[in-house]
């Protein structure tokens, strides 16, 4: 590859990764292509409205992949809320207060969605124009397994039983997460949908286990 081509490619890649917003400010009306922290107008320092076209990955400024780095995600989230939290806008004008409330709630939703493996998967599937089907499932072998697991959790009485089930189930979800990552990487949406429905059932079991742990007052 020639150096020129390399530079051109590099530049092109950068244009995609460094996401910069270009718009005119709602407050002072000036065009601005160099927002401060990607949020504030560089002329009048007013907080800009959230961009409706941006997906949750863009809003938080993390790479769009199923294997998000959770520490990075948390850091980006906290950094953003430092600027956006409505408490910081108590003395600003009404319009800016509204924007901050709206923006900060979108950031909350984005963080919650991307942090949780199941919600993240469903969201990424939706970004690709697909949903988990609503129709009832007839994969009998799998359903029998799920039914049995649910019954096991229901019948578990000792602390050891519940802890053991919790461990197994968490490992199951982790394993599905790995498989999902590969399926997303391969762009195999059919497999993604299947894995996500599996994950949905195991997450339901997880909720049931967590309730049992709470009800029994088990301290971990």
């Amino acid at each position: 590859m020639s150096i020129g081509r390399f530079v051109w490619n590099f530049g092109r890649q950068n244009r995609f990764t460094i996401h910069q917003r270009y718009r005119s400010c709602w407050s002072c009306g000036k065009n601005d292509n160099n927002l401060i922290s990607n949020l504030f107008c560089s002329h009048c320092k007013a907080l800009q409205k959230p961009d409706k076209a941006e997906n949750y990955f863009c809003i938080l400024g993390v790479k769009e992949t199923y294997d998000v780095d959770e520490t990075d995600l948390a850091k980006k989230y906290k950094d953003l809320q430092k600027y956006l939290h409505p408490d910081k806008y108590a003395n600003r004008d009404q319009k800016e207060q509204e924007i901050s409330a709206q923006y900060s709630s979108i950031v909350n939703d984005a963080y919650k969605t991307l942090l949780e493996p199941l919600a993240r998967g469903i969201y990424m599937l939706r970004l690709r124009g697909k949903e988990i089907p609503e129709n009832t499932e007839a994969d009998q072998e799998f359903l029998v397994k799920i039914m049995e697991k649910n019954e096991e959790v229901e019948e578990a009485s000792t602390e050891e039983d519940i802890i053991k089930l919790n461990k197994e189930n968490k490992a199951m979800i982790k394993d599905l997460q790995k498989k999902l990552s590969t399926a997303f990487f391969d762009g195999d949406l059919k497999r993604v949908t299947k894995l996500l429905t599996y994950m949905k059932y195991y997450t339901s079991i997880d909720t049931q286990i967590e309730t049992a742990i709470r009800n029994k007052g088990i301290i971990r």
Partner: peptide
């Protein structure tokens, strides 16, 4: 009859 709802993770026998 054993059925499940993939959208919400419910199972019913």
């Amino acid at each position: 009859g054993l059925v499940g709802a993939p959208a919400c993770g419910d199972v019913m026998k």
